[in-house]
Design a binder for these strands. Structure first.
Lengths: 338, 338
DNA sequence: CTGTTAGCGCGTTCAC
DNA sequence: GTGAACGCGCTAACAG
């Protein structure tokens, strides 16, 4: 941010006052068309770029949206960010981007920093550690518009755009049951994280509704959400031969299951059927291709940004929740064979 | 950006002057420890958050870095962004994020917007359309620090952090030749884009060095860089049976090739060996697993950010280029069989 | 239509 | 050690 040309520079050059220049540069009525023309031309000639920072101080809006994600390097968040960016840029907003690295301390630091940057609003997908929501309550108290997307704290009065995890999981497991599975394991995500808790509930309810009962030994925790978790897979193998279905909390885990089971001589889906979650690109490429639950990541990002900007423009709006549908994609890893 | 508490508020409450409060909030010597303590306490009690915007106007730095990528939703850029963010956040910088969508018009708009946001520096990976570099020259003229990463315009005096595409491609193709391939096709990226041109050159030189000559019909353009390009694959199939190797400009294309060839009854790597580029997660999952050229995406992001911040702190530095090595990963799609 | 004045929140001289 | 005055780049209110 060196010494850029300012309206003062062009005012001096044209022997005009800064306010006249300011008016010429904006869409205000009280301005002589010819002066306006003149100002515009010299502004272009001087390579003038308006200073949004200075404008922000007056208009009290920065046109910047703070976005906090647990990790950026993931298919889901990449698509969500694309959706956000599309809406934001079309409405003149910019994204100020932060990554919590799944740490709640980092998340709090990020929130404060973004507030100090005076973002007009906040879009947050919480870290898997986050249980204390007091920092978010402070944000709401300060009347800074806030929308959670994908991962949202349960006990907080705030706007959210989330995907129906429960329903997706329920249908995935019911599908396994329809395919004849009776002893279905669940590779679960970290406890306390909304999305993994919901997927777990969907798993359990689908079993119960079909006369099966959830058993502890069939529920295997994978705290490192994104990892392939060799330990968890080993626990799964120990269940054999009392196992004919696996519902994995995400696709990388699903893929790992397929590979390890195949390596152990198990046929998929003949002996064990497998379903994942998220529709990562890998799921389609695997052999057999992994059945999975597709989440509308792009749409989540778009809707969250739309909702946030609506709230920025009308701060009186009450918290609202948008629940998007997920969609079961049946592929070879769970399809009945002929 | 509503009515947040300012240093004025806490000055009034404490019956102090704003400058005293300002001094207490920063690390300046001329301040009574007890008043400093008092100010700090009431600041915390009032939930005061410093206004970076106002500070920026005075310090003439925003601690914001503008980042422009062609697409965010890709494995490579996701990892690069992670690397950038790591360095940036550790040094108190924030990322202002833009996506050009592979359009050079959007890219120019992004550049101007970021300059108006008064970012301290710019990190850019150019769109595949970009041929005119005049907008970047303007940035350099304005003495705004700029570093290109991954995709850089060829004819411009600017700092760059790039991966040795030529070498990666050369070794990939030489590897195919070592495996016995003699009729190697190249599914190429868009012409004019630095990285695809370099990969093409590496392909051609590897052939020549080994006594083979590049033929036009073996070079198939895929202008939609990221797509699986059914048309291109069809052209490839038309080459059969005069084909025993394929070097694809990226992994999604490589995967498509494998699938289509398999569907056509071709054995891989027995009849045709395939190598991709980038080491996307899909490449490992495919069957056979796709050999590929790994690029250090995370390191590219880190180095680019480090270089940029160095240039922000010392604007006198001359343009420099960092050339990172890629690494050939040999998997089943090209490995000699026993 | 145009210029003058004031002020956004804060840091930076200077006196005191 | 503290306060008053000024200015960063710009917009807003008013006077002319």
């Amino acid at each position: 941010m060196g010494k850029q040309v300012t309206i003062k520079d062009i005012a001096r050059k044209l022997r005009l006052s800064v306010s006249t220049v300011s008016r010429a540069l904006r869409n205000v009525p009280d301005i002589n068309p010819s002066t306006k023309q003149l100002v515009l031309e010299t502004a272009a000639a001087l390579n003038y770029e308006p200073n949004y920072i200075a404008q922000s101080l007056i208009t009290r809006e920065t046109k910047m949206i703070g976005v906090i994600v647990p990790v950026i390097s993931s298919d889901f968040f990449g698509k969500a960010l694309t959706g956000m960016n599309e809406i934001a840029s079309s409405l003149g907003y910019h994204l100020l981007f932060c990554q919590s690295n799944e740490s709640c301390e980092t998340e709090i630091v990020n929130i404060r920093q973004l507030i100090s940057c005076r973002v007009d609003g906040l879009l947050v997908s919480v870290s898997r550690e986050t249980t204390d929501v007091s920092e978010f309550e402070k944000v709401i108290q300060k009347r800074i518009p806030l929308v959670f997307f994908d991962r949202a704290p349960t006990h907080i009065e705030a706007s959210k755009v989330i995907v129906n995890q429960y329903d997706g999981a329920f249908r995935a497991v019911e599908h396994l049951i329809e395919m004849g599975c009776r002893r279905i394991a669940h590779l679960a995500g970290p406890a306390g994280l909304s999305i993994s808790d919901e997927r777990m509930k969907g798993y359990e309810d689908a079993l119960r509704k079909n006369g099966l009962s959830p058993e502890d030994r069939y529920i295997i925790r994978c705290d490192h959400f994104q990892d392939s978790a060799p330990g968890a897979i080993r626990q799964l193998l120990d269940l054999l031969p009392d196992l004919d279905g696996v519902f994995a909390v995400n696709d990388p885990l699903g893929i790992s299951v397929i590979r390890q089971l195949k390596a152990a001589g198990i046929r998929i889906p003949g002996d064990v059927a497998v379903v994942g979650f998220n529709d990562d690109p890998v799921s389609e490429v695997s052999e057999p291709a992994l059945s999975t639950v597709m989440q509308p990541a792009y749409k989540v990002g778009k809707q969250a940004m739309e909702m946030l900007i609506r709230r920025i423009k009308d701060k009186s709006e009450l918290p609202e929740t948008s629940l998007l549908n997920s969609h079961l994609i049946i592929r070879s890893s769970s399809r009945r064979q002929n």
